Computed example of a mutant assay.
Amino acid sequence: MELKQSPGKEARAHNRIPFPARTATQMVDLRNSSTVTEFILVGFEKSSPSTRAFLFIIFLVLYSLAMAMNGLIIFITWTDPRLNSPMYFFLGHLSFLDVCFITTMIPQMLAHLVIKNHTISFVSCMAQMYLVFFMGVAECILLAFMAYDRYVAICHPLNYDQIMSQQVCVCLVGISWTFGLINGIFLEYISFRNPFFKDNHIENFFCEAPIVIALSSGDTQVSMKLIFADAIVVLLSPMVLIVTSYARILASILSRASSSGWGKTFSTCASHLTVVIFLYSSAMFSYMNPRSTHGPDKDKPLSLLYTIITPMCNPTIYSFRNKEMKGAMRRALGRTSLAQAESV
């Protein structure tokens, strides 16, 4: 009777490793307590091809307009010596923030509208989220300082140069950038403090913090509470300063005996407040509401509002209705036309 020999060590070792590729990548993920190496940005993936093509054209036009208008403001405010005032100094930085803010998201969204691969790596998602936090927080604070600048200019014109000196303006812009930098690091840590074992489908066109946190494992309630507390400081505090500044501006205008300039002041304040309401209300709904009230149909329109619509409206509301800005644009275009004529 012939006895069967048991398999050798090499055969047993071979049987124990059915998937050799796991040893290189997935074991690293296990050591890092994370199995998610990339996310899938669902965005407009469920839309029909014709709808995606239409959205691509619309968003490309809006993105191009926002880049062109903000780029023109940056060039004019930083090169025209006649626009040497705190208001235009702030406007130049606001346009620069808008350019950086929309560039972190919109080009990727446009690419995902025309290609089938909607993935974004874990590291790229972290980088995108940090830039969104950094630029978004800095812009919220800068808008509050711009409202305060208008309050000082209208309500305290005689002391305007002393209150809003060049050193003060540089300090205020530095505060907005520094706070955005530090706050971005804090929010980044909150968003990625838990490991990711769950679904990696993000129901939006960019890595938005509340959605990413909901995909993580562990206690997500703590992270959401920290996000909520941070939003109170970052969103509500600047908004209170903005509303207070414009309320005092209107009260100062109404208290004057002459009614000349009332219409222009009301129009300007209303335009500025409209932009602020669009930006802050959409951001508040995204970061201060419980996730149970959210959904793809609500998140994406609101995200579009503060990621592309507001940066496109800022130049029109804050700059293109200004006579000095229009004059600077004509001078800039005149210099460009003259330079082209001389080159020919």
Score class of each variant (00 low, 15 high):
residue 1 M to W: 08
residue 2 E to F: 11
residue 4 K to S: 08
residue 7 P to Q: 07
residue 10 E to L: 13
residue 13 A to F: 12
residue 13 A to I: 08
residue 17 I to S: 09
residue 17 I to T: 14
residue 19 F to D: 09
residue 22 R to K: 08
residue 22 R to N: 07
residue 24 A to H: 06
residue 24 A to I: 09
residue 28 V to M: 06
residue 32 N to K: 12
residue 36 V to A: 10
residue 38 E to D: 13
residue 46 K to W: 09
residue 47 S to C: 14
residue 47 S to T: 14
residue 49 P to L: 04
residue 52 R to A: 05
residue 54 F to Y: 13
residue 57 I to D: 00
residue 58 I to P: 05
residue 59 F to I: 07
residue 67 M to I: 10
residue 69 M to R: 04
residue 71 G to N: 01
residue 75 F to W: 14
residue 77 T to V: 10
residue 78 W to G: 08
residue 81 P to L: 00
residue 86 P to K: 01
residue 87 M to C: 02
residue 91 L to G: 02
residue 98 D to C: 15
residue 99 V to D: 00
residue 103 T to R: 01
residue 103 T to M: 01
residue 104 T to V: 11
residue 105 M to D: 02
residue 105 M to W: 06
residue 108 Q to I: 13
residue 109 M to S: 10
residue 119 T to Y: 05
residue 120 I to C: 05
residue 122 F to D: 01
residue 124 S to D: 12
residue 127 A to G: 04
residue 133 F to S: 14
residue 140 C to K: 10
residue 141 I to D: 05
residue 151 Y to A: 06
residue 151 Y to M: 12
residue 152 V to A: 05
residue 159 N to K: 13
residue 162 Q to P: 01
residue 162 Q to L: 13
residue 168 V to N: 09
residue 175 I to F: 10
residue 175 I to T: 07
residue 181 L to M: 13
residue 182 I to A: 14
residue 182 I to N: 06
residue 184 G to A: 02
residue 186 F to W: 03
residue 186 F to Q: 00
residue 189 Y to F: 13
residue 192 F to L: 04
residue 200 N to R: 15
residue 202 I to R: 14
residue 214 A to K: 15
residue 218 G to K: 01
residue 219 D to V: 03
residue 221 Q to N: 09
residue 224 M to A: 08
residue 225 K to V: 04
residue 231 A to R: 02
residue 232 I to K: 07
residue 235 L to A: 07
residue 241 L to F: 11
residue 242 I to H: 03
residue 245 S to N: 03
residue 249 I to W: 03
residue 253 I to K: 15
residue 254 L to D: 09
residue 254 L to M: 11
residue 255 S to A: 15
residue 259 S to Y: 11
residue 261 G to N: 01
residue 263 G to L: 13
residue 264 K to M: 11
residue 265 T to P: 01
residue 266 F to H: 09
residue 272 H to C: 10
residue 279 L to R: 09
residue 281 S to F: 14
residue 281 S to M: 11
residue 284 M to Y: 03
residue 285 F to A: 12
residue 292 S to P: 00
residue 300 K to G: 03
residue 300 K to I: 15
residue 306 Y to T: 06
residue 308 I to R: 05
residue 309 I to Y: 08
residue 311 P to L: 02
residue 324 E to N: 10
residue 337 S to M: 08
residue 339 A to F: 07
residue 341 A to I: 04
residue 342 E to L: 14
residue 342 E to Q: 12
